[in-house]
């Protein structure tokens, strides 16, 4: 048998020898085991075991803060992320609400300018006002009420609301407006919604103020009251009252939408609110529809939107416009009209 070399191909004999060796008890294995034993020097043993012991000691002597650093880091990151999210949301709300407040103040000023300088205490019935005046009053009153709600008051909300309700009662009788019982009770989530005492110049528009909270009861009471007053007028006035009623329903709907919007923005700023207020995305506030006192101005803006090729926005505004002013005459060829198209 020739000695195998690296270049020589392995034959069957080699294979058999390998199999024999792998089974154990080969002469080569025996010879290998008979080689002189190699002992690990004791110094090496001590060195290795000492290192092992040192490593364990070093590990156990780690300060507590090192062991807890990872969980603390995770918790701190979570808290930080949450704080950023909350803070960002609140800031957005604050920015938007301040913009809205400024806008509302401007509208109030405009409403006050357009309103009669001194309204008599015994004001004419709602049906006697022109539609334009009613709308202006309604808007102005609503915006003033919203502003009042935002102003911090010394008295607690509940008491303030109750006081406001009490103050409302006599004026309601005076102006033949819906009974105070019909006035909406302050909601626990937004107690500032309770009607506040109106300024002297707004007392003539009491019937609108009572409806301002937007409750369904108030709306129905107001409607029934409007119907009662319409019965007392002549046929022409009845027709006008019916028309006004429709219009009022639409306006109420619009007001409810606006109130819910303003309540949301106010809730983010008003820290006295008893309920948790969650931030809304800034986009929601930015897209808040503008309120118009003049339908023509509204139409003008819709036309402008159409000119700017913002059809979707224009259509939306047109629908809002139609909901608010269902009977306002708009020419068939008016650019503001929705392409029904």
């Amino acid at each position: 048998m020739t000695e195998p070399t690296d270049k020589r191909p392995l034959d069957e004999a080699d294979e058999q020898q390998l199999e024999h060796y792998l089974k154990g008890d080969s002469r080569v294995s025996r010879r290998y085991r008979e080689l002189p034993g190699v002992e690990v020097p004791p110094s090496l043993d001590r060195l290795v075991l000492g290192r092992a012991q040192e490593a364990v000691k070093h590990r156990s002597s780690r300060p507590v803060w090192v062991r807890w650093s990872a969980p603390f880091a995770v918790a701190a990151s979570a808290v930080l992320a949450l704080a950023i999210v909350i803070e960002t949301g609140v800031r957005d709300e604050t920015t938007v609400s301040s913009v809205l407040r400024t806008q509302q103040k401007m509208q109030i000023e405009a409403a006050e300018q357009s309103a009669p300088p001194t309204a008599p205490l015994d004001v004419p019935a709602p049906s006697q006002l022109t539609r334009e005046e009613q709308r202006a009053q309604l808007k102005g009153e609503e915006l003033r009420a919203a502003e009042r709600r935002e102003e911090p008051g010394p008295a607690p909300k509940g008491e303030e609301s109750r006081a406001a309700l009490k103050r409302e009662e006599p004026s309601a009788v005076e102006t033949r407006v819906p009974a105070p019982a019909a006035a909406p009770a302050p909601r626990p989530a937004a107690p500032a919604f309770a009607p506040a005492p109106p300024p002297p110049e707004a007392r003539s528009k009491r019937y609108v103020t009572n409806e301002a909270p937007g409750s369904a009861q108030a709306a129905s009471a107001s409607q029934s009251d409007a119907k009662a007053s319409a019965d007392q007028t002549d046929v022409e006035a009845s027709a006008g009252a019916a028309e006004a009623e429709d219009e009022r329903i639409a306006v109420q709907r619009m007001m409810r939408e606006e109130q819910s919007l303003s309540a949301a923005s106010r809730g983010a700023v008003d820290t006295r609110a008893p309920v948790a207020v969650y931030s809304r995305p800034i986009s929601a506030n930015m897209s808040a529809p503008r309120t118009y006192l003049d339908p023509e101005e509204w139409l003008k803006d819709i036309r402008q939107l159409r000119k700017e090729n913002k059809q979707e926005q224009a259509d939306r505004e047109w629908r809002r416009f139609r909901a608010a002013y269902p009977n306002h005459e708009v020419a068939e060829t008016d650019l503001a009209r929705e392409a029904e198209r």
Binding site: E3, P4, Q17, Y21, S26, R27, V28
Partner: peptide
């Protein structure tokens, strides 16, 4: 391993 075995066996 096969080559190693062959050489060691040769030595024996």
């Amino acid at each position: 391993l096969r080559y190693a075995l062959g050489k060691l066996r040769g030595a024996l």
